[in-house]
């Protein structure tokens, strides 16, 4: 049984229908890359899981339980944590307070100590008392990831974590995430930076215009320059 399973999912924003009969299955402790062009529906797929999409239909189970009628906070409290595309650090709270809120709101499992995050992200240690809104994009991304990790998720959803980051920061983030995926956590990651995602992931799904286009192992995908050309409009992966 998969940890997360989407079957025949349709997603809507008002009258516009953006996900079409989508299927996706993530096994426990797997790392899955969710790839596709801009506007393909990657973020919307994650929103389907977190319950923040305005309307969805179809099957959605987590750990064998139907979660399609759960509220956003109920889904979160089952251990599904999102690092959103826009980072969404609390702008008026300090770095430290952002982490404390994450710690305080962890339920059903032990939160990881805030101090541990400062070891993983030394840059945040120096910014403890800075407000979220005064952080650079990279710092906000670190904080957003740290906040999710504090809550010891069973399923971590990462929405384009490298978007807009300088290459050195991307390398730092890669180091952190490659340690995260070694642990007892399942990860679903979307990326435009295909190399980044494929280096972390074991399997991949490609979606196009809101529908499944392909899925398989990363090893297979790396042999398929045609797929990358067709669906991701980037060069081959080396």
């Amino acid at each position: 049984m998969s940890l997360l399973e989407l079957t025949d999912v349709n997603g809507y924003y008002g009258n516009s229908h953006v996900l079409f009969d989508l299927d996706l299955a993530v096994d426990r402790n797997e790392v899955i890359a969710l790839l596709g062009r801009n506007g393909a529906g990657k973020t919307t797929t994650l929103r389907t899981v977190t319950g923040t999409i305005p309307r969805r239909q179809g099957g959605l189970t987590f750990d064998g339980t139907d979660i399609s009628h759960d509220s956003v906070d109920e889904i979160s409290n089952r251990g599904i944590k999102l690092v959103p595309e826009e980072r969404r650090v609390f702008p008026t709270l300090t770095v430290h307070e952002n982490m404390q809120v994450a710690r305080d709101m962890t339920s059903g499992t032990e939160p990881r100590p805030v101090e541990e995050m400062y070891e993983i992200f030394p840059v945040l240690d120096e910014l403890r008392e800075n407000r979220g809104r005064n952080l650079s994009g990279g710092e906000q991304q670190m904080l957003s990831v740290a906040r999710a990790l504090i809550q010891s998720p069973d399923l971590l959803l990462l929405d384009e974590p490298t978007e807009g980051l300088a290459p050195v920061i991307v390398d730092d983030l890669y180091d952190v995430l490659s340690e995260v995926v070694e642990q007892d956590v399942t990860v679903l990651i979307t990326e435009q930076n295909v190399d980044f995602a494929l280096d972390l992931a074991e399997r991949a799904y490609i979606i196009d215009k809101g529908s499944n286009a392909w899925d398989g192992t990363v090893a297979e995908l790396e042999q398929r320059a045609d797929l990358l050309d067709e669906y991701l409009s980037v060069g081959a992966v080396e």
Binding site: T50, V72, S76, F90, L93, V101, S107
Partner: peptide, 22 residues
Amino acid sequence: NIGRLVRATSSDRDMAALMGVN
């Protein structure tokens, strides 16, 4: 703690919900 939670939710209620706040 509750005060911090109130400030967080007041600045971004959708993110608060995503972190498990009712």
